[in-house]
Every structure is written in structure tokens, then in C-alpha cells.
Amino acid sequence: MVPKGKLVIIGGAVDLGSSLSYNENINHPHYIKFFERGILRRMITESPKKEESVIEVITTASKIPEIVGAEYIKSFNQLQVGKVHVLDIRTREDALTEESIERAKNADIVMFSGGDQLRLSSIFGGTEFLEILKRRYEQEDFMIAGTSAGAAAASVNMIYRGSSSEALIKGEVQITGGLGFIDDVIIDTHFVQRGRIGRLFYAVASNPGMLGIGLGEDAGLLITEGRCLEAIGSGLTILVDGRYISETSIYDVEIGSPVSIDNLKVHVMSIFDKYDLHKHELKINKAIKVEEDVYLRIKDYD
């Protein structure tokens, strides 16, 4: 089934245009320009109701939900969106309340914040709340977004732990079930900044049928029709394709031993590039990249 909704996954540290993110660079013109035409703005322009959208920010994964929620309200308000609310779900019981269910049914955009993705899967897994989001994503022009942990948990399978420095040691990377909005991919976040390429290599080697998606900070993908991936944001996205692996030792070596992999295919995406998940084809949008001051000249998205 081709979903009618849109999925936005973000690598974390999205430029919120506020003190929580990129505070040290708040006066840097790159970030100011990007906030004006960036990931959050793109989310609004992709929503049918635009600035009139009802947005529910789910802070379940975060240890500081009050702070995170307030920052997202502030940031969306700066983009002229007034109907932004924090859905403060901290337990499975919270997810089952009548209020939570009704808010899931009435939102135009639901956004999962960062934190611990295992909290997302363990609290929402198997609930009516999650089933409502999935059904709306499949049948309506409805948007689900996630940043950091919220992005990592978006797929059917998710990475929930694993050292970056020892990722290619058998048994170090742990994978479990995610929220299940998209299949055949596995997602890692804060990818470039935290050196997590080994985690993604290992995850893909363990199941070469999954496309590995490594999202850098302030980098994201807008996913339409469950297959069309467009790079958004100022950062880089790395794709790891394991279909061409010719040999790996992952199934032979003992737990705790290093793993070898031959012939992984890697793509690098930046803003406006597109990847077809079914055809496994990357289209680099050179024409837009050569525009001067590109962050202020995205006329198609105004």
C-alpha cells in the first residue's frame, strides 16, 4: 500500500532558531538563513493547512520534556504557526488516555522529539495511539516527523544501542523493533558528528536487504509515497546499500570478534538530492545547488 502521508526524519540538532540549538552560532548567517527556509519551514509548506496546521510535539523520548516542548512551540510560533501543543506522554497509560487518542486523531502533524528511542518503542508499541498514527499516515495527507531518537524509531527495525568506536565488533550493535512507519530501511542519527558509520555498516551487513540511512545533524529526509526520499536541511545524509555485499564474516565470527565486509555501496546526499527507495537510484540536483545564496531562494517552497 502506498501511504498518502508524508514522513520527515531528522538527524538531530535541527536549527530551531532559538537558544536550545546552535547557540554558539546563533549570529552566523548560514544558520539564520537556514532557519528561515529550513526543515521546520519545509514541514509547514508540505502540510495542507500550512500555518493553520495543528502540531502535536511528542516529548516521550526526552529527559527534559518541558524544555524541549517549549523550544518547539517557540520555534513553530516564529514560523507563524499558532496551533502547536506538547503531548506529554511518559507512560503507556498516558498513551491510552482519551485525550491522547483524540489529539492523535485531530493533529495535522505529529513530531517525535529526540532522547531515547527505546522509550518510544516500549511506550507506544502495540497501542491504539500508534495504530491511529499508522492508519492516518497510510490513508490521509498527514505528516509524521521525528528528530534524533524520533527519527531512529521511525522504521520497522531500529538501532537502540552500540558504541561508535567498537561498532564493527560482533554483538556491539543492538537492533530491535521500531514504530514501523517505513520498512526496508534502518536509520541512525547525529551520524557524521558522532562517527556512527560503523554502526550503520554493521546493521546493514546483518541484513543487506535494508538500506542504511545515516542522518547528520540538521539534515533530514522528506519521504513521500513511502519511497521517494528528498534531502532537506543543511547537513549531509549517508546511504549505505548492502545489496552488493560479496562477502562478510558477520555470520562466522564469534561474539566480540571484529567483522569484515566486502563491497558496501555508499551514497552521500545533500539538500534537494532525491533517492528512489524502490529503484535504488540517486538523483543529484546540480541545477539548484549552483544557485547563489540558495537558502534564500527556494521559490518553489514559498
Score class of each variant (00 low, 15 high):
Gly38Leu: 03
Glu36Met: 09
Ser75Gln: 05
Lys74Val: 05
Lys63His: 15
Ile44Ala: 01
Arg41Asp: 14
Glu71Met: 14
Ile89Thr: 00
Ile89Asp: 05
His85Arg: 13
Val57Thr: 12
Val81Ser: 00
Leu79Tyr: 00
Arg90Met: 04
Thr60Ala: 09
Leu40Val: 09
Ile67Met: 15
Val68Lys: 13
His85Lys: 12
Val86Glu: 04
Val68Trp: 12
Arg90Ser: 09
Glu52Trp: 07
Thr59Gln: 08
Lys83Thr: 02
Val57His: 06
Met43Pro: 00
Arg42Ile: 11
Arg42Pro: 05
Glu52Val: 07
Thr45Ser: 13
Ser53Thr: 07
Ser47Lys: 06
Asp88Gly: 08
Ala61Pro: 04
Asn77Gly: 02
Ser53Ala: 10
Thr59Trp: 09
Val54Trp: 01
Phe35Leu: 03
Leu79Asn: 01
Val57Phe: 11
Ser47Phe: 05
Gly38Arg: 02
Arg90Tyr: 02
Glu71Cys: 14
Ile55Thr: 05
Lys49Gly: 04
Glu71Asn: 15
Arg37Thr: 15
Gly82Ala: 12
Lys50Phe: 02
Leu87Cys: 07
Arg41Ala: 13
Ile73Asn: 02
Leu87His: 01
Asn77Tyr: 04
Val84Arg: 01
Met43Thr: 03
Val81Asp: 02
Glu36Val: 09
Ala70Thr: 12
Lys74Glu: 15
Ile73Thr: 07
Ala61Trp: 08
Arg90Val: 04
Ile73Trp: 05
Leu40Met: 11
Ser47Gly: 01
Thr59Gly: 09
Glu46Leu: 15
Lys33Arg: 10
Ile64Gln: 14
Leu79Thr: 00
Ile73Glu: 03
Met43Asp: 02
Lys50Gln: 09
Arg41Tyr: 15
Asn77Ala: 08
Leu87Gly: 07
Phe35Tyr: 08
Gln78Phe: 00
Ser62Tyr: 10
Gly82Phe: 07
Arg37Gln: 15
Ile64Tyr: 14
Ser75Leu: 07
Ser47Ala: 10
Gln78Asn: 08
Leu40Glu: 05
Phe76Gln: 00
Arg42Glu: 12
Thr45His: 06
Ile89Gly: 04
Glu66Pro: 06
Ile67Trp: 12
Ser75Trp: 03
Thr45Val: 14
Ile64Lys: 14
Glu71His: 15
Arg41Met: 12
Pro48His: 05
Leu40Asn: 06
Ser53Pro: 02
Glu51Gly: 04
Ile58Glu: 02
Gly69Ala: 09
Met43Asn: 05
Phe34Gln: 14
Lys74Gln: 11
Ile67Val: 15
Ile55Pro: 12
Phe76Lys: 03
Gln78His: 01
Val81Cys: 01
Ser62Asp: 09
Gly69Thr: 06
Lys74Arg: 11
Ile58Arg: 01
Ser75Pro: 06
Pro65Ser: 09
